[in-house]
Amino acid sequence: MKTLVLLKMVPDVVEELEVAGDGASLSRDFLRLIINERDENALEQALILKERHQGTVTVVAPDAPEVDDVLYTALARGADRVVKVTGLEEGVGSAEATVTVAAALSSVAGLLPVDLILTGCQAIDDLDGLVGPLVAHQLGLPYVGIVTGLDVHPGGMGRCLREYPGGVRGSFELDLPAVVGIQGAEKPPRYVPIAKVRAAMTSGTIETVAGSPPGALPLRVVEMKKPEVAERAEMIAGGLDDIASRVCEILAGRGLL
């Protein structure tokens, strides 16, 4: 079985994010990029399937600072090939990366067709593009998102569980090849010790493919700012009745009632 995993880097929100001078993008000064958590889950699920059914796992990622570390780590975890799509200047939102990666897939030697494409079902910077559905559409493959469990049955049939509200999970049957947007893998991503990553760095290679980013983007960010968040909680005072009413209002406002 041939599996393709699409992953990308996103800003690490542990670091305080700052707005750049243009007022509409992220400052690079203290920006730290990390792998999109759900993409990491997708990789793990792909590796679990590989262990179960043999086959190969290829990882494709748009170029970004520190992506090499992530790709070597993917090799150390058990991926067979890692490919970096170059030519991108990452900005906020992901239409650019999404379109570029989707378009570049056909130029990766010997990649297509694959049996399964896994990627995170969402990333925190997916303002204007979601790579899973786009790739599915372009390749004419079916797509299911928010998947938390996936297996492949003989005869090229996939089975997956998709999250619905309230802990309910929908059980789906998939014709392969298909694109699956992963929320969580069967188990959390495995740990790879630094020693193994180092070994992958010396023995593994990252292939590169030149991507051609789209000229114009469909969405223009005119302003970026930190939302006004209070340092501390907004204290609700008054009589018990008033407080309770106010709490109800807040919950209702968030669609929680």
Binding site: D12, V14, R32, I34, P188, P189, R190, Y191, V192, P193, I194, A195, K196
Partner: peptide, 25 residues
Amino acid sequence: VARGEVSDRIQDTLTNVMRYGNSLG
């Protein structure tokens, strides 16, 4: 650890140390 058999929380901690240089993330 070499076999990756660590609990989630240990893994979080190791990742924190690797990424941020402190165990608290």
